[in-house]
Design a binder for these strands. Structure first.
Lengths: 124, 124
DNA sequence: TACCTATTGATAACAATTATCATTAACGGT
DNA sequence: ACCGTTAATGATAATTGTTATCAATAGGTA
């Protein structure tokens, strides 16, 4: 197996995600991190977001036709406005717990559920 | 408002989705429907799938970086293998019911939840 | 300090989806 | 049954998000 190296780019990307409460896509992370690290490349942002997601450090959500990233990996949920696209965090851990408990599919091992409510936000 | 017309293309697309138990993307629907309707265009498939989804006739899921379509709109769930990408239907309506009941977000109105388990299927 | 190679930056390639536009056909009115 | 209106279509260009490529750079260990 290959050994991972700690790079400044990866640290800055993770640090940024942990400082915000939104759910940016790769492009948005790129624009934000570039303020601190002007030379960072968009490809590096994509690579690191995918790496962090595959090792479970961050969440990779599929919303509105693109990948959104979230450093909060504790079982919470999301609500998406089908009109304006706004993403809202919902903290009802019991939903996630209940879903995982009910999952008794033969052979399928899972410790992770994406729960996304679709509807209208208060402004729409 | 505009009045929708019943076209053969839309009927065939819906009929096809209701005859299968998989979760095809637009391209796959296109290839299947074209066997019956050789002149149909990929753009027409995209347009109709989006129309059917927006009116709630079918589900539009975001899995593995693309849109998948499902004619079964009754509260069931999906499991996705993070290794091979396989999508499996899970029928635990209680999960959906419980999630919607617990959703008490201020101002957010929703009657629809996408619940997607991530894990390893029996073969992986 | 020197080596190995994981990681990077820059950019090309790719894939899924949407936009465009002239043509076609659904359907209500005559 | 024939119009006339315009929603919908087919063909394709354009767009967008993401991944692949590859030479150059820089972690980490000896």
């Amino acid at each position: 197996m290959q050994k991972t190296r700690t790079t400044n780019q990866r640290l800055k990307i993770l640090e940024h995600l942990r400082n915000i409460r939104t759910h940016p896509n790769a492009e948005a992370v790129f624009k934000s991190v570039r303020k601190d690290l002007p030379v960072i490349s968009l490809a590096t942002v994509y690579r690191n977001l995918n790496m962090l997601a595959s090792q479970g450090t961050i969440l990779k959500l599929e919303i509105n036709g693109e990948y959104k990233f979230d450093a909060n990996t504790c079982g919470h949920q999301h609500a998406v406005c089908t009109n304006c696209g706004k993403i809202i965090d919902i903290f009802e851990p019991a939903i996630t717990t209940y879903a995982l408990k009910k999952l008794t599919l033969n052979g399928f091992k899972s410790g992770c559920v994406d729960i996304i409510f679709k509807g209208r936000c208060d402004k729409c």
